[in-house]
């Protein structure tokens, strides 16, 4: 089974988010980058399936060279090889086109990724890739198992419940917890990752359909108003009369 796992290189959750150049660009200064936490579920589940059923796991990143440390990290966690499409990921439509080009060429049985990235929060790419390839996309899935060699069984979240879906390979799925327990690299993995192939290819053309014009930050909270614990009922009155939310 050949599995393609798409990963994004994103600012660590604890990063301070700032913008430069008249609020037109994200300020990378001092920001630590990580593998998108949602993608870690896709990556680990792919490795688990490979260990159980055989096959290979290829990681794919659409991004610039500064993503390579995290691509190596994905190899250290257990992916076999990696591809980086050397391009600025302009928008979801552009990224989906790049993934589709790679996926068509590679003939993968399964294309997995996180349900969204924690920086652009799109929740778009997986369904776009499914549509572009003309194959099923099941999102967001929190359970993924093989029924037989050609059929997978997934459980996906819908508002207020879940659906159980069975699909034939190949398909696209996006992952969310509790699909698996994301792994961290061990020393042996880190050593072997250095020699695993990481291929860099140029973008397959493709256009963006949206332009990020500028950014803004939410208004700062004015500070917490503390209510004495002995007089806790007062809070309910404040929520009704002052905050007007009850």
């Amino acid at each position: 089974m050949k599995i393609l796992v798409c990963i994004s290189n994103v600012p660590d959750t604890t990063s301070k988010i700032n913008f430069t150049g008249d609020n037109k660009e994200f300020d990378k200064n001092g920001v630590q980058y990580v593998i998108n936490p949602w993608d870690e579920y896709a990556l680990t589940r792919a490795i688990e399936l490979k260990e159980a059923k055989g096959g290979s796991v290829t990681v794919l990143n659409v991004g610039e060279a500064d993503a390579e440390p995290n691509i190596r990290k994905a190899l250290a966690i257990g992916a076999d090889d990696a591809i980086r499409v050397n391009a600025h990921p302009k928008d979801a439509f552009f990224v989906a086109q790049q993934i589709t080009a790679i996926a068509k060429e590679g003939g993968y049985d399964m294309i997995l990724m996180g349900k969204e990235s924690i920086d652009y929060n799109g929740f778009q790419v997986h369904n776009m890739v499914g549509e572009m390839m003309g194959i099923p996309s099941v999102t967001p899935a929190f359970k993924l198992d093989m029924v037989d060699d050609s059929t997978a069984r997934l459980e996906r979240e819908i508002e207020g419940g879940k659906e159980v879906v069975e699909v034939k390979l190949p398909f696209v799925a996006s992952a969310q917890q509790p699909m698996c327990e994301p792994r961290i690299p061990n020393m042996r993995g880190i050593m072997t990752a250095r020699t695993k192939p990481l291929k860099v290819v140029e973008a397959a053309g493709g256009e963006a359909k949206s332009e990020y014009v500028n950014y803004s930050k939410p208004e700062k909270k004015s500070g917490v108003k503390l209510i004495d614990a002995d007089n806790a009922g007062e809070l309910i009155k404040l929520l009704r009369n002052e905050a007007k939310v009850l």
Binding site: I118, D119, Y120, K209, S210, E211, S216, P218
Partner: peptide, 17 residues
């Protein structure tokens, strides 16, 4: 205007199609 960076910012985006 859309929410980005997990609630820490907003982005203004032109839809060009």
């Amino acid at each position: 205007t859309r929410g980005v960076f997990s609630g820490k910012a907003f982005a203004q985006v032109n839809l060009t199609s």
